[in-house]
């Protein structure tokens, strides 16, 4: 069982750079061919500094910084038994290629269902860009099947 004393734990800040190539490969992976994710002149014409990151890109940043698997590893959880159960994003400012984003993750809840057969680990991550602007808040629920 996940020790509930982990609730409230904050992890060291992480920094991730949003590269143009990454924005493009992410859009390609989700099958979104909108030119705004590929052509910088079109992005600029729409008022962006550079290619905007698609709405669910911030979670890729968390994964790239190993924030989710790090916790599972620390808890000794086999990630083949872990699944993403719920995800939310609240957007506060543009997120674009070229941004250098700092994130801070903390554990906000741990609970179980079915007498511990399913455990839930809930974390929140706040992202800020290089200008100190609050970009996005993420809330992630990981389900562990015991």
């Amino acid at each position: 069982m996940i020790d509930k004393s982990i609730i409230g734990k904050e992890y060291a800040p992480f920094t991730v750079e949003v590269e143009k190539r990454w924005v493009r490969s992410f859009a390609e992976a989700i099958g979104d061919a909108s030119p705004i994710y590929f052509d910088e002149s079109i992005a600029r014409a729409a008022g962006y500094r550079s290619l905007p990151a698609p709405p669910t890109f911030p979670f890729a940043m968390i994964m790239d910084a190993n924030q989710s698997f790090m916790i599972l590893d620390q808890l000794g959880i086999d990630k083949r038994r872990a699944m993403h159960g719920e995800q939310s994003f609240v957007y506060h400012a543009d997120l674009c290629a070229g941004d250098v984003v700092t994130g801070r993750q903390r554990v906000v809840d741990v609970y179980d269902k079915k007498n511990g057969a399913l455990e839930f680990l809930v974390t929140e991550t706040r992202l800020e860009n290089q200008r100190g602007e609050h970009v996005c808040d993420l809330r992630t629920t990981v389900v562990v099947r015991n």
Partner: peptide, 23 residues
Amino acid sequence: GFLGQLLTLWVPQRQVRSLSARF
């Protein structure tokens, strides 16, 4: 990600304030 695209095909992305789902 597909649900994100559903929204950005409907309105410009900057107008999307939040997105969440239960899997």
